[in-house]
Write a protein that binds this DNA or RNA. Structure first.
Lengths: 125, 125
DNA sequence: TCAATTTATATGACACGTCATTGAATGACA
DNA sequence: TGTCATTCAATGACGTGTCATATAAATTGA
């Protein structure tokens, strides 16, 4: 049944869960109240911001996050409606889209990133 | 802007997220397909199973999980409908409830726990 | 060059979690 | 003892994620 090793695994798992929820919750609330975006929205902004240039990105970004393809699609919808990001279709493969921050998006990202990093620091001991 | 320390924090955070999603996803899929319960349902079963006896537990269990009170309430609903758990009102405080595994619940928990521990071991390097 | 297959993204139905609120029981204290 | 505040749990409205599928474009190969 419950070997000591099992207990230790469960402990470790609960610790990860707890860190994850505490941190994600804190960031989500802060971003929501100060910038009216959620954590997932920020994470896409963050990825786009750090992915230097072109390339047909939707797909590639998807590989850098645990988000589902359909989740990504919807988050990008919201970001587009909020005027923070724009979708451009790709010249060389018209199935693909690449994403670009708008000026508003870039500015919001810069400010939100400060908050984001601060909360990470605070929560990841 | 992006200090090296910031980058390291973000790295660390992504690693936690990735571990969390990978592990939770694997467990959830396995339990769902083999026992028709999700990860949250299992976690409540697991807590009840390891909390030896009486006491008016809903509340106390809530303190041992990142779940919301209302989330707990709904998960317990599902578990009750599935016949895995039962709610009993408390003698000394009729606002409170304590939970108990049914025989079916106890049995399912034992089997599911094996799978759960195995997947933890597999995913938490 | 024309099917058949595969790939990139979007979308609809649905499940679950959260927030705010409610209802009921308890506690505090004048 | 009677009010007022507090606590425990349940519920409804709502947002967001997932799965399965749709749509459209590209690729393969006969």
């Amino acid at each position: 049944m419950a070997t000591p090793q099992d207990r230790q695994l469960v402990e470790q798992w609960r610790s990860i869960q707890s860190t994850y929820f505490r941190t994600a919750g804190a960031i989500d609330r802060a971003l929501e109240s100060r910038f009216s975006i959620g954590l997932t929205e920020f994470e896409i902004l963050d990825l786009v911001a750090e992915t230097a240039e072109a390339a047909c990105r939707m797909k590639q970004l998807g590989e850098r996050t645990p988000m589902t393809q359909s989740a990504m699609s919807k988050v990008v919808d919201r970001l587009e409606k909020a005027g923070l990001i724009s979708r451009h279709s790709c010249e060389d493969d018209r199935r693909s889209l690449f994403l670009e921050l708008t000026d508003a998006g870039r500015e919001l990202h810069q400010q939100a990133a400060v908050e984001h990093r601060a909360l990470l620091k605070e929560n990841l001991a």
